[in-house]
Simulated scan of single mutants.
Amino acid sequence: MLFLCEHLPLQTTAPIEILDITDRVRKVFDQHRIQNGQVTVCSAHTTAFIALNESEPMLQQDMLDFLIRLVPSDAPYRHNINPVDGRLNAHSHLLGLFMNASETIPVVNGELLLGGWQSIFFIELDGPRAERTLRVQIIGER
Rank of each mutant, 00 (worst) to 15 (best):
76 P>Y: 03
26 R>W: 13
117 W>V: 13
131 E>N: 11
132 R>W: 07
132 R>F: 12
90 A>Y: 03
113 L>H: 03
140 G>F: 06
19 L>R: 09
52 L>W: 04
43 S>G: 14
94 L>A: 07
84 V>D: 10
123 I>D: 14
18 I>P: 09
79 H>K: 03
115 G>R: 03
10 L>K: 04
121 F>E: 13
134 L>M: 05
4 L>R: 08
111 E>F: 12
89 N>T: 03
107 V>T: 13
137 Q>L: 03
74 D>M: 07
4 L>D: 07
12 T>M: 10
120 I>W: 03
40 T>S: 13
9 P>D: 14
9 P>F: 11
31 Q>M: 14
16 I>G: 12
125 L>H: 03
65 D>K: 05
20 D>Q: 00
127 G>D: 11
105 I>P: 06
75 A>N: 05
1 M>I: 09
107 V>A: 13
63 M>P: 01
131 E>P: 00
38 Q>T: 06
43 S>C: 12
65 D>T: 15
26 R>T: 13
101 A>D: 06
72 P>K: 11
29 F>L: 09
56 E>G: 02
29 F>I: 12
63 M>N: 05
104 T>M: 12
125 L>G: 06
90 A>F: 07
138 I>E: 04
57 P>G: 00
81 I>T: 02
6 E>P: 06
141 E>I: 14
136 V>L: 02
80 N>R: 06
98 F>C: 13
117 W>F: 15
85 D>K: 04
15 P>I: 01
52 L>T: 02
140 G>T: 02
53 N>C: 01
62 D>E: 06
88 L>P: 00
33 R>L: 13
113 L>T: 06
10 L>G: 08
140 G>V: 05
136 V>P: 08
37 G>F: 09
25 V>R: 02
135 R>P: 08
133 T>Q: 09
17 E>R: 01
30 D>M: 15
29 F>H: 07
87 R>P: 06
59 L>R: 11
1 M>R: 02
5 C>N: 12
106 P>M: 11
18 I>K: 05
27 K>P: 02
126 D>G: 11
39 V>A: 03
23 D>V: 01
67 L>C: 10
117 W>S: 14
136 V>N: 00
98 F>Q: 10
71 V>A: 04
131 E>R: 12
90 A>Q: 01
67 L>Y: 14
40 T>W: 03
58 M>K: 03
120 I>M: 07
12 T>I: 07
61 Q>V: 07
118 Q>K: 00
5 C>F: 01
27 K>T: 14
74 D>F: 04
79 H>V: 06
34 I>K: 02
12 T>H: 08
109 N>I: 04
23 D>Q: 01
122 F>N: 05
38 Q>D: 06
2 L>K: 14
31 Q>G: 08
85 D>R: 02
28 V>S: 04
20 D>V: 01
6 E>K: 12
111 E>P: 00
30 D>L: 15
68 I>T: 15
96 G>Y: 12
108 V>Y: 05
5 C>K: 14
32 H>N: 15
113 L>Y: 07
96 G>V: 13
67 L>T: 05
100 N>I: 01
32 H>R: 08
121 F>P: 10
73 S>P: 04
21 I>F: 05
127 G>M: 07
121 F>L: 08
102 S>Q: 08
117 W>H: 14
76 P>E: 08
121 F>Q: 06
19 L>M: 15
55 S>I: 00
